[in-house]
């Protein structure tokens, strides 16, 4: 049984509708995002489901996961804090911002907070160069930008996310 299709029948149908029927393969990226909605990474089970939906091999689906940085084969924190340290941001203090943020959270880039809530990642230009320092948050099937940041404002954002997670956790329970 295709779990993905079972869980999100309408989304799957809407995605497949975008592309000519003989090019179902095109649906792979939107389907991978869908697969990440639930737990933030693409599970082996989802790979099989997507392979079935697109007529690809599981190897080919995995290959796509590996190429694109917004797809994650491994579980990380619930929210991925993706700080841009590319040249324009760096000219406006992004490297220092990231260093302080790591210190504040007590983890380094690539690591996850012990409560499983946040993973810090360093990313390339996000087209917000004029509002550096900035980061985006990937999690809960969404991506949001946070610009003109200081470490203090960033910690506020994270606090908000933590509350959001607790709230949705309670609702689910």
């Amino acid at each position: 049984m295709n779990e993905l299709q079972k869980r999100y029948p309408e989304d799957v149908a809407a995605i497949l509708k975008k592309y000519p029927p003989e090019f179902r393969r095109s649906a792979i990226m939107p389907l991978l995002y869908l697969a990440q909605r639930q737990d933030g990474h693409v599970s082996g089970r989802s790979v099989t489901d997507i392979a079935e939906l697109t007529g690809l091999s599981t190897t080919d689906v995995t290959s796509v996961v590996g190429f694109y940085t917004l797809f994650h084969a491994e579980a990380g924190g619930r929210y991925r804090i993706q700080v841009c340290t590319d040249l324009p941001c760096a000219l406006r203090g992004a490297d220092d911002f990231l260093a302080l943020l790591q210190k504040e959270l007590g983890i380094s880039v690539g690591e996850t907070t012990p409560d499983g809530m946040f993973t810090i990642e360093e990313v390339k230009c996000l087209a917000a160069c004029h509002r550096a320092p900035m980061f985006q948050v990937q999690g809960d099937g969404d991506i949001t930008y946070h610009e003109h940041q200081t470490v203090e404002s960033a910690m506020q954002v994270l606090k908000g996310l933590r509350q959001q997670a607790q709230k949705s956790g309670k609702e689910a329970a």
Binding site: V47, S57, T59, T62, S63, G66, F67
Partner: peptide, 14 residues
């Protein structure tokens, strides 16, 4: 197929 990109490209099978 290939996995990753750039210099990290590697061959995988699943």
């Amino acid at each position: 197929d290939f996995y990753q990109r750039g210099r990290a490209l590697e061959i995988i099978t699943r």
